[in-house]
Simulated scan of single mutants.
Amino acid sequence: MTVLIDPPNWPGPRGLMWSHLVSDRSLEELHDFAARLGVPERAFDRDHYDVPETVHARAVELGAEAVTSRELLLRLIASGLRRRKRR
C-alpha cells in the first residue's frame, strides 16, 4: 500500500487546515483507505481526497506516508493517476 498525505497547509471550511490524501498505486487503494479512515466519498476530487487536519495523525497511524506537498504531487504525476481540472 502506498497512500500519501501531505501536511495540513491548505485553509478550508470550518476554519480548519486541510491535507491531500492520494495513492501512487491505484484509485481503488485510495478509496479503500479513505473508507477505513472514515472520510466521506464527497471529499474525493478527481485524484485525491481533501481531509481536515483532525484526521492527519490517524491517517499516518493507519499507514499513510507523510510527505511534502511537492513530493505528493510528483509521485501522483509519476504514477499516471494525476487528473487535472479541465479548463
Rank of each mutant, 00 (worst) to 15 (best):
R83H: 01
H48P: 09
W10D: 08
D50K: 00
A57C: 12
R25Y: 07
R75G: 05
H31I: 15
N9G: 03
F33D: 02
S26E: 07
D32P: 00
I77Q: 08
H48W: 11
R83K: 02
L74S: 00
D45M: 02
H48D: 14
A34M: 08
M17I: 08
R42D: 06
H56V: 04
A59G: 04
R83W: 01
S19N: 08
L16Y: 02
P8N: 03
L72M: 10
M1Q: 11
G38Q: 12
R75T: 14
G38N: 08
E65R: 10
R25H: 09
V22M: 03
V51P: 07
G63W: 00
V60S: 06
L27D: 05
I77Y: 08
A43M: 00
A64F: 12
H31G: 05
N9F: 10
R58T: 04
S19E: 05
H56T: 09
L62E: 01
F44E: 13
R36N: 02
A59I: 15
D24C: 12
P52Q: 04
R86S: 14
S26R: 07
H31M: 12
L73R: 08
R83L: 13
G12S: 10
F44C: 13
M17L: 12
E29P: 00
V55Y: 04
E71H: 08
V55Q: 04
A57N: 12
A35F: 05
A78D: 13
P13M: 12
E29Y: 05
M1A: 11
W18R: 01
A78V: 14
H31P: 03
E71M: 14
G63F: 08
R83P: 04
D6Q: 03
V3M: 06
E61G: 08
V3W: 01
H56P: 15
R82N: 14
R14S: 09
A64L: 10
R87E: 05
A64W: 02
D32M: 01
K85P: 09
R46W: 14
G15K: 15
H31S: 15
D47I: 12
V39S: 01
M1N: 06
L76M: 11
P40F: 14
E71N: 11
R14T: 15
T2H: 06
P7Q: 11
R70G: 02
R70P: 01
D50H: 02
Y49D: 03
R87F: 09
R46I: 10
Y49L: 06
P8R: 09
A78Y: 06
V39K: 00
R75A: 04
R25I: 14
D24K: 03
T68H: 07
E29N: 10
L4W: 01
R86M: 07
R46M: 13
P8C: 07
P7V: 01
T54V: 08
P8M: 02
L76H: 14
A43D: 00
E53C: 15
R36Q: 03
L73K: 12
V22T: 09
V60Q: 12
R70L: 12
A35S: 04
H56D: 02
G80L: 04
S23A: 07
R42A: 02
M1V: 08
D32L: 08
T54R: 12
R42K: 10
D6V: 04
D45Y: 13
L16M: 11
R25G: 11
D24L: 09
M17V: 10
R42F: 02
A64D: 07
A43T: 01
I5K: 12
S26T: 15
V60N: 08
R58Y: 13
P7E: 06
V51W: 03
V67Y: 05
L21R: 13
A35K: 07
E41F: 11
